[in-house]
Amino acid sequence: MTDHVTHEYPRAFKAATKVDPLILATALDHIARTAQRSRSQTRRLRWIEQRALIALSGREYSDLDLDLPKNAGPDTHEKLQKRMSFHIAIKHQTREALVQLLDVCERMDLEDQNQRPTEEEYQSALAAARALKEPT
């Protein structure tokens, strides 16, 4: 009868006993290089890179060795960037609607009837401006 031992990291134990170490080392090296070459260097990517490099050097991992990634919250860089992009887009839409409405209003007083806006142009500009008005 054989005793069955449950390891803390069963996937890692299985890989350590059944996978060629060169394959594991190559994978760790690839992970480190990929994280290092990322266009955006986040704390999490730097941590992944360093974690892989520590394993490749044969050292035991310790949380004290690295600046651990923060837990994702409402104010992560990516979420703030997305919110900022949204507000910038709204600003541009508002400006475009205002410019269109001002153009229509300024052309209303022109003497040449052909240069004046049509009722359709006026209503369209007004509708675009109203659509951006925040609810009260």
Rank of each mutant, 00 (worst) to 15 (best):
I90S: 05
A125V: 03
Q100V: 01
R11N: 15
T17D: 09
S124G: 02
H92F: 02
S57P: 00
L53K: 12
R44I: 01
L110A: 02
R83F: 01
D29L: 10
H87V: 10
G73A: 09
L80A: 09
M84R: 12
L28D: 05
T6A: 14
F13P: 00
T94R: 13
A128T: 03
T17Y: 11
T136D: 07
E78L: 08
Q50C: 00
A89N: 07
E60V: 13
D112N: 12
L68F: 01
E121I: 02
L132G: 14
K91P: 00
V5K: 14
R37H: 05
R51G: 02
Q100K: 10
D67H: 06
Q36C: 03
A72E: 13
T94G: 07
K70A: 08
L64Q: 09
V5G: 04
T26G: 08
I48Q: 05
R59L: 05
N114S: 10
V5R: 15
L132Q: 15
H4A: 06
D29G: 13
E134C: 02
E8T: 09
E121A: 05
P21Y: 10
S85Q: 13
A32F: 04
Q41A: 13
A89C: 00
K79S: 15
L126A: 06
A27R: 11
Y9D: 15
E121N: 01
A15I: 12
L101M: 12
K91N: 05
L80M: 15
E134V: 06
A35N: 04
V5M: 12
S62C: 01
P69E: 10
W47K: 01
R130C: 09
I88D: 08
Q50H: 05
Y61F: 15
R107T: 03
K79D: 14
R51S: 15
